[in-house]
Structures are given as C-alpha cells and as structure tokens.
C-alpha cells in the first residue's frame, strides 16, 4: 500500500491576476519504506511540490486540481486546523538550510519536545526524555547535556541532525527531505544520508528525497521522478533511469554527470535555462532547450506514456506513437 499518492496534482500561482500552473498534472506514489527521489534543476517546482503536500503553500498559490492522499486520506481540502495535526505528526520535513531552520532563541531541546507535547500529548518531563532519546538516535554526542544548548552552539551538521530529530519525533509515515544535505560538507552529507536511510528502514517510513544531485539519487533512492518546469517528465526506478533515460531532459541531466570512464571534455551542459514562473510555456516546457523539439511540442503538453518496462513513464512527444503528426490530426 502506498503511503503517499499524489494524483494529477496541479498547483496554481496567482501572479498579479495571471494564473500560472507551477505544478502541472503531477502524479506519483511513495510506498511504505520506499525512497522516491525528485530531481531537477532549481526552479522546476520541487519545493513547490513539497509545500503542496504539506499544505504550506504561500498565500498566492493553491492546489487547483488533483489529490494529495496520505495513507488513503485526502489532504488537499483539509482545513488548516486539521493540517496542523498532520504536519509534524504524520509527515515530517527536513529542510535545506540547517543554519537558519532552527529558532535561535529557544533551546534545541525545547524545539524537539514541542511536537512531542503537541501531537503525542507527552508531559514536559516525558517529552524531555523522549527528546533526549531522539537526539541520541540521530547521533548527537552527549545528548542529555546538549538538551539545553541553543542552535548557535551547534555546527551545521549537528543542527541538521536536530532538524531530522524534529522531523521523525512523532514517528511520521512520510518524511520529506528537501535538499537535506546540499548546504553541508561532503563528509557530513554522507553521514546524514546514511542516517536518514537507517531511520527510514527502522520506521518503515516513505521518503520523498528532493535533490538536484544525481549521485545522491543513485546511492539512496529506489525510484526517481524527474521534474522540469512543474511537469513530471519521467519517472522510473533508479536503475531504469540511469540505464535508459527516455526524456531528452533526463538524458541531458545524466550526460552532465562526470564519469570516471569518460573524458571530462565530453561533459555536456544543457543550453538555455529553466523558464521563469511567469513565462511557463503552454506546450512542453522543455521545448526551448530540447534538441528534438517539434511543432507539436509548441502546441500542447505531451501525454504520459509508458515506452519500456512497467513503472517507467515518460512525458514527451518523441515517445508518443505518431506524435509528430498529432498536431495535424
């Protein structure tokens, strides 16, 4: 059974009266104990997706179509009060920037205990004990004595451990990790990702790992969703994607990865840049940077097709039977 089921989700941003769909018909599932990576460049809608799931969209954005289903329960129409009881309890979230993610004026202990008291109804004393256990679980050394420390007394990596402790405090079903290690040293990145893997196995959580780093995807995810300009352009198992990328964008992303068996001069970069939110095109959103762009790409968004193995979806006119002529008919 899937923990998270995002179905045909559309999130619309209201920019001075103009509606732009920053997420367009996004669908995917995360099963129990599975890690689904969401990859793409900055500005392709990854964080907007996380915020749509959490119900934390900015006031100018809202979900205009589709469903976010957590454990069989639709969230998109839940009122804010109900979402307060779900966030932190059944969905945990880890953010990109550990240096600013914690409140500077409260002790880390108080910040970890807060959801325990809110969601699990623990007493102050029990929450303190549970918080120290959590700090030990995320391997913060001498946890008991650091309970009363303030965030500024921690390094970036340690702060991110605190954020992780917070996110898993109430034993959530789903963990959303939005670029959890991007701001950290490479050695610390590795430790934290291993920690996340370990915690996930232990709690049978589903994990949504949002990243732009394909190396992280290869090492830590089960399946991948490639996003571009608010569209899911390809989704596949990690193995399928790395072996047979189908979408031109996914191919270009993989070609831009350095590999030991290839000369560095062959490293490809993708020409052009991600379209700005206000100028998202109507048809395929990658068409301006795509070497295979056709007339049809201009006119309508491609449908989702399954070219190869089961579970490998791609959204590109190249993979639609007779797609070149669809515009005529």
């Amino acid at each position: 059974m899937s923990v998270l089921d995002v179905d045909n989700l559309r999130t619309t941003l209201n920019l001075n009266g103009r509606a732009c769909h920053v997420l367009r018909d996004v669908s995917f599932r995360v099963a129990e104990g599975e890690t689904l990576a969401i990859v793409g460049e900055s500005g392709c809608g990854k964080s907007m997706l996380a915020m749509s799931i959490m119900g934390l969209l900015p006031s100018v954005a809202r979900i205009t179509q589709g469903h976010v289903v957590l454990d069989g329960h639709a969230l998109e129409k839940e009122p804010e009060r109900a979402m307060e009881k779900i966030r932190g309890a059944r969905i945990g979230m880890v953010f990109q920037e550990p240096m600013t993610a914690l409140n500077p004026v409260f002790t880390v202990g108080a910040q970890i205990s807060e959801p325990l008291r809110d969601h699990l109804g623990l007493s102050r004393r029990d929450a303190r004990e549970a918080a120290i256990e959590l700090m030990e679980k995320v391997r913060i050394p001498s946890a008991a004595s650091r309970y009363t420390s303030y965030p500024h007394e921690f390094s970036g990596g340690m702060r991110q451990r605190v954020v992780i402790a917070l996110a898993i405090a109430c034993g959530p079903r789903l963990l959303i990790a939005d670029e959890p290690t991007t701001a950290l040293d490479v050695t610390v990145q590795r430790q934290l990702l291993d920690l996340l893997d370990h915690l996930q196995d232990e709690g049978r959580m589903g994990m949504l790992l949002i990243t732009h780093n394909l190396a992280i995807v290869a090492g830590h995810a089960d399946r991948v969703v490639v996003m571009y300009g608010g569209d899911v352009v390809e989704s596949a198992t990690v193995r399928d994607l790395f072996r047979n990328p189908a979408h031109p964008y996914a191919r270009a992303l993989l070609a831009s990865l350095p590999r030991v068996d290839r000369d560095l001069s062959e490293l490809a970069s993708i020409p052009g840049r991600v379209p700005p939110l206000a100028g998202l095109p109507d048809g395929c959103r990658f068409k301006d940077r795509c070497p295979h762009a056709m007339d049809i790409c201009e006119q309508m968004p491609p449908p989702t097709e399954m070219p190869g193995e089961a579970g490998h979806n791609v959204r590109c006119w190249l993979h639609v039977e007779g797609g070149e002529h669809a515009a005529d008919g």
Partner: peptide, 15 residues
C-alpha cells in the same frame, strides 16, 4: 518569512 518559522509550521505548531 524566516526559515525557522517554516520549520515550526512544518512540525505542526498552531498558528
């Protein structure tokens, strides 16, 4: 607008 307010909302602290 700070990140830590987003963190607080993400852990379900009442508005």
């Amino acid at each position: 607008r700070s990140d830590f307010i987003r963190t607080a909302r993400a852990k379900g602290v009442p508005a």
